[in-house]
Amino acid sequence: MWDNISLLGIAPLLNVQLLLDGILIGAIFALAAYGLALVWGVTNVKNLAQGDFVIMGGYIAYVFSTLGFHPILALPVAAVLMFGFGWLVYRLIIAHVIGRDLFTSLLATFGLALVIQQVLNLIFGPDVQTAESGFDILFLFGGQVTLAEIKLVSLILAGTLAALIVIFMKTSRMGQAIRATAQNARAAKIMGIDTDQVYAFTFALNAAICGAAGVLISMIWVIQPFFGISYSIRSFVIVTAAGLGNLPGVIIAGLGLGAAEQFSGFVLGAEFQQATVVGLLVLVLIFRQLQMRRHRKVVA
């Protein structure tokens, strides 16, 4: 471990490589996490199938590439298809558990995650798949730092998507209705907002965001029917750290998590890369607990 840390000191460009890799992938984590925050904040459903929605998006890109299209074209298609899928899931499942206690919605979405995994496995088989962007590699600092162009393109696309969502939430009628419902569902209902419709739209929008994130993931990493869980966990860590309804927080936490994974993978070894994610969740929870205790004292 100390060897690796001193290596980072001797060759400072390694830090740049790790940071770039981490931040660029972190942007996609942030995207999926924002979807989770949205659904969590508005409907109070903690969607455990979040990562599986991401993987579904990835498979849509994979199908696109096998059909001879460029996988990046799958982005709008995946968003639309997943929006429809999200709407359907809301009507069939989520609408029935939305008012129930936490445990019911956790179980329902966990069950949904299992079904998605198995169906993907039946259709595509258990082998890993990738969608090739065919983009080039950039060499920075005389070739000492390499950067796949697809990661930059993904960052731009993820950023654009996030900006679009923000504009939508601020300016459109539905966006305002979503925010009103998140603040106080009962009041929103009294004001004439069809909250059921808002819930359905929010859940579908989340699925669409995940689908888009999945398309990007399939071009950068690899996808497999059972990989969803790691994206679900990352989304939960990011949202827990950032808090609900805090988009800048989600972005910073997402980028930070991406970078933290890379550095821990380098310093501690790849076996700790994902342990870091869970470790950070524990730290965040402890920190939040302390924060709230102080808050409770003040209130008392």
Partner: peptide, 17 residues
């Protein structure tokens, strides 16, 4: 001597080393 996690989809940290 890195050990990759089970649901591994990234080994860029190892390759940087």
């Amino acid at each position: 001597d890195d050990k990759l996690p089970r649901d591994l989809s990234d080994m860029s940290a190892t390759l940087t080393k």
